[in-house]
């Protein structure tokens, strides 16, 4: 059973106020490892040459608006960029001291988490983690609260603020509609000349990544970013330098984001079931021998504690 489903059950049960907070710890111990056949992409930043072909391919595949600058204009690297409503993937350049090249590039896009924070934070369930491993988005029900953007640990979702009447979250969907569900790799993987992007089953890619590191230890820093981070991501990164040098957040921990929220969610059924009894009881005690309605106001001493919880 997936944790999301578990939480749904937990909350639904809580709403009915039929059982207490004990369920909060019962089955939430493990971590959802992702669908067994989930696909992923291994990004080998040692191969990336910063040609921006992936950006161009994504732009065409997803029918994004015309870019501000041509895709062969490398001046965009002068400023770090992030994904937004016009670009679902961007490549950034990083000055790396210990690398022989001095400069490295890293493509970023939605990492397609095993347990996506965007999905778990969405109150209309606009996100779906598909069997193929993609995290897709349903714009028809999105209310536009942008909690997913708050929740995403990688700062990936963008919002089409410029649209007045149909603003939507814009994020990489692994080319799900046009490619992934037909068993094809996403457009960026297809076009990458260097094969810096390797498409495959996530479980195989993890082996591949470790194998590359093992075979050529001089070439790689020994860490597969995304193997464990925030519960594991569909997109994985290996690099010749430590992840933080390529602006990958190394403080995220290995627990999915939803784990942080668990403690609160665990209290919900408790409050729902205990509070009514507790406060009704207090009411009976506090108003014993007294008229229910407003009595003489002077019988209470002015300095009495007002007894808020």
């Amino acid at each position: 059973m997936k944790r999301r489903d578990f939480l749904k059950v937990c909350l639904a049960g809580g709403a009915a106020a039929t059982f207490g907070g004990a369920c909060g710890t019962a089955r939430a111990g493990g971590s959802f490892e992702g669908y067994p056949d989930g696909m992923g992409v291994l990004v080998d930043t040692t191969r990336c040459i910063g040609c921006r072909s992936c950006e161009a391919a994504c732009n065409k595949e997803q029918k994004m608006p015309e870019p501000k600058k041509p895709f062969d204009d490398m001046s965009v690297f002068n400023q770090p960029r992030r994904t937004d409503e016009t670009a679902l993937t961007v490549v950034n350049r990083y000055e790396v001291k210990e690398s022989s090249r001095g400069q490295m590039y890293r493509k970023q896009q939605c990492n397609h988490c095993n347990e996506p924070a965007c999905l778990t934070s969405c109150f209309v369930n606009a996100y779906t983690k598909t069997r193929e491993g993609a995290v897709i988005y349903n714009g028809d029900i999105c209310v536009g609260c942008r909690n997913c953007m708050i929740a995403c640990p990688f700062n990936i979702p963008g919002y089409s603020y410029s649209s007045a009447f149909n603003p939507l979250v814009k994020k990489c969907i692994f080319c799900y509609d046009t490619r992934l569900k037909y068993g094809k790799p996403p457009a960026c993987v297809d076009i990458c000349p260097q094969e810096a992007l390797t498409f495959g089953h996530r479980k195989d890619l993890i082996k591949t990544a470790h194998e590359r590191i093992r075979e050529t230890p001089d070439r790689y820093y020994d860490h597969v970013y995304g193997e464990k981070e925030v519960g594991g991501t569909g997109w994985l990164y290996i690099s010749s330098v430590s992840p933080d040098q390529l602006a990958m957040d190394t403080s995220l921990g290995n627990e999915p984001i939803i784990s942080n929220v668990k403690e609160f969610l665990g209290t919900v059924p408790m409050v729902l079931s205990i509070w009514p009894a507790l406060f009704s009881g207090i009411h009976l005690l506090a108003t014993r021998n007294k008229d229910h309605h407003d009595n003489d106001t002077s019988t209470h001493t002015p300095g009495q504690e007002d007894g808020t919880p």
Binding site: C122, V124, I141, P167
Partner: peptide, 22 residues
């Protein structure tokens, strides 16, 4: 909200019961 006219959606159209915002 980006689409304020959809505010009732979490009540009637689609539920995301694992979300705190729900």
């Amino acid at each position: 909200l980006g689409q304020p006219w959809r505010l009732p959606y979490p009540m009637v159209v689609s539920f995301g019961p694992a979300a705190v915002l729900f």
